[in-house]
Each structure stands twice: as C-alpha cells, then as structure tokens.
Amino acid sequence: MLQNDDRLITESGLDARVARIVAPLLEALGFRLVRVRVTGQNGCTVQVMAEREDGTLAIEDCEAISHAVSPALDVDDPIGKAYHLEVSSPGIDRPLVRRMDFERWSGHEAKLETAVPIEGRRRFRGQIVGLENDAVGVRLHDLGHETVWLPLSEVSDARLVLTDQLVEQSLKAGKRAQALN
C-alpha cells in the first residue's frame, strides 16, 4: 500500500533526472517536491514546484530553494545547456501527486488522466469523492454524476480545476495563515 507522502505521479526522462537531484535537497530544507518540468520556454526552463508539508510556500522559500538547487544542477549538469530556473508553489489549480492530495482535496473538481483506458476512456473530469483502498473516486459530470473508481497506480496526471469553491477555500486558508503570522 502506498504511503500518504509518496508521490504517485512522477516524472520520466530528463524531468526524472532533475527530480532525483532536487528532491533530497528540498527534503533537507523542509519542503516536498511536487513536480519538475523541463520545457523549451525561453530557450530552456527548469520548473521546480515545491511546498511545505502544510501545502504552503512563501516567496522567501522559493529563494532558499533556488539557492540550494541551482548549484547542485550546475554540478550534476543534467540539462547540458543554459537554462532558466523557476521555483514555484503548486498554485490553486495544483497538480495532485500524493495520496494525501486526493484526501485533502476531496469534494473539489479535478481532471485526471490514466495511463490505460478505464471503462473505455483515459480522461476524467469530476468531483473527487474520496479514496477507497488504492483507488480515487470521481463523480463524473458527463455521465449523470456516476462515480468511477480509478486505481491510483494508473493515474498518470491529475490536477484541481479552478472553481469558485476552490478560490473561496484558498482565500480563507490564506487569511488563516496570515493571522498566524
């Protein structure tokens, strides 16, 4: 059985090589890796998405991560050419990469894609209704609100959909965090 903090959805190829370098550095600083993407944007951009265990990431955190990650990537040189490093939080319409993400965001709308067809399709959009064993339940809008159970091991991509409910919850969380500071 997968642990709550294990990433279910991980990178491949060059993105995976960068993730292997970056993940232990983030962990040592008290952060978790959400995702790494290497894109052709601005010539070449390495995007590192991270968060604290509570899901937050401040601008100062991005700076600390950048200062730790940049020299390690320069030494290991997995990119092999000049690149721009971007460090960011997952944002409101965040990727869901851990079992605990699906638990935390239960009740919210998400888009999920599976590695293999399930019930004749690979793309699903609907409300996350929870986890059962190692499957996530999604109440589909396009099938009369039928719930399908997708094995977490087959989910290749998942992200929250920007909705009024999600924005409202994020604003409330931001106010709570600000009150604590």
Rank of each mutant, 00 (worst) to 15 (best):
Y83H: 09
D164S: 13
V38Q: 11
K175E: 14
V38T: 07
K111P: 00
R121L: 04
E51Q: 15
D74E: 15
N42L: 15
P90F: 15
L180E: 15
E168S: 14
R20K: 07
P117E: 10
P78I: 00
I59H: 11
Q178M: 10
E27D: 08
V36I: 14
T163L: 10
L112M: 11
F102Q: 01
D142L: 08
G30E: 04
R17V: 01
R17N: 14
G174N: 13
E103V: 12
G40Q: 10
I9T: 09
G137Q: 06
F102H: 03
L162H: 09
D6M: 12
S88P: 02
L162K: 03
D74L: 12
V46W: 10
L152C: 11
D5C: 01
E154D: 12
R98V: 01
Q3K: 14
E60G: 05
T10L: 06
D77V: 10
A158Q: 05
D77K: 11
N133G: 10
V38F: 14
Q127V: 15
A158S: 12
L131T: 02
V34T: 13
F124H: 03
V36E: 04
E51A: 14
D76W: 08
G30H: 04
V75R: 13
M49H: 01
V48P: 08
L171R: 10
R123W: 04
D74K: 14
A173T: 00
L85G: 01
P117G: 03
Q178D: 04
P71L: 11
D134W: 03
P71H: 11
L162E: 09
V75I: 15
